[in-house]
Simulated assay, not measured.
Amino acid sequence: MAIDGVKIIDSDDAYDIYNDIVERYKDGIDVELIKKDWLNEESNFCTDELYTEIYWTALAYALWNIGHLDEDIKNKAMEIISKGASKLWNEIDERAVKARQKALNKLALQIQSENPRPIKKPKPQKRREPYFELGDVISIKFEDKYGICFVSDLEVRPRKIEYHIACARTLQDFEPTIDDFVNSSIAYKKMNTEFVLETDCWFNHKDLGELLPYLKKIGRIKLKPYSLGVLSPADSLENFYDDITNKSELWPFKTIEISEIIEEILEN
């Protein structure tokens, strides 16, 4: 996990903890459930002295920011802070321990009193429904060609809908069918026994909505178990086109026939 600096929220782990707590709090998730979920992650995050310090301070800081830091977590964070910044920070920079200690001292002052301006929950928004569902196969209408893609992952939350869309490596002159998709290939790589898709356009709800005139659902499928190896933000048809036509010389990947990895056609 990357550590970018000595601030309380300045590493992959700290960002994961802070962002999850704040976003779920804003989504209206019960705070006690959020705490329970993250306390259950202690053994996964506290792998050594340095990451134990990062875990407990990030947890305390996030909960303090939303106005729900309890005594047990505060006391655990204060216990960590009282030991001083881990000497393992020196492996990042010879001056890091001193700078980290300043950040810890500031945090100690903060969490010993209530946050005067905690993050507030936004007003509930009208529920939105996603445009597509996981596994939906979609034709893409370009200026003079058609492409094919499918929804490889979907996150639906009260304030956010995000779509991950994986493109088949095909362009054709006529509107595609589900059979055209099944007979196409897709970029992938194999890591141990895991199948990893090496194609991905990531859209928010608003941006994908603007492209709906060019998109049409043509079926729904279920692939054999896979994970996403590329997470590329997107907001235009050009992102689809680039994903379909990119070259393996620029981004190393192999291709595989979709017919080899499909588990079931759910809708045709």
Rank of each mutant, 00 (worst) to 15 (best):
T193V: 09
T193E: 12
T193A: 04
T193R: 08
E194H: 11
E194A: 09
E194L: 13
F195P: 01
F195E: 01
V196K: 06
V196M: 07
L197V: 05
L197Y: 00
L197A: 02
L197Q: 01
T199M: 06
T199H: 00
D200A: 05
D200V: 05
C201Q: 04
W202A: 08
F203Y: 15
F203D: 00
F203L: 08
F203A: 08
N204H: 04
H205T: 03
H205R: 05
H205S: 05
H205A: 08
H205K: 06
K206F: 14
K206N: 11
K206E: 15
D207P: 00
D207M: 09
L208E: 01
L208I: 15
G209F: 07
G209M: 09
E210F: 11
E210G: 04
L211R: 10
L211D: 03
L212R: 15
L212Y: 05
L212Q: 06
L212M: 13
P213R: 14
Y214S: 12
L215G: 02
L215M: 07
K216R: 14
K216G: 02
K217V: 03
K217C: 11
K217T: 12
I218M: 10
I218W: 10
G219Q: 04
G219D: 06
G219C: 11
R220H: 02
R220K: 15
I221S: 00
K222L: 11
K222G: 05
L223C: 07
K224S: 13
K224P: 00
K224T: 03
K224A: 08
P225I: 10
P225H: 13
Y226D: 06
Y226N: 07
Y226A: 13
S227D: 03
S227E: 11
S227L: 09
S227Q: 08
S227Y: 07
L228S: 07
L228R: 11
L228V: 14
G229F: 02
G229M: 03
G229N: 11
V230Q: 09
V230R: 15
L231C: 10
L231P: 00
S232T: 12
P233D: 12
P233K: 12
P233M: 13
P233W: 07
A234H: 02
D235I: 05
D235M: 09
S236I: 09
S236M: 12
S236G: 09
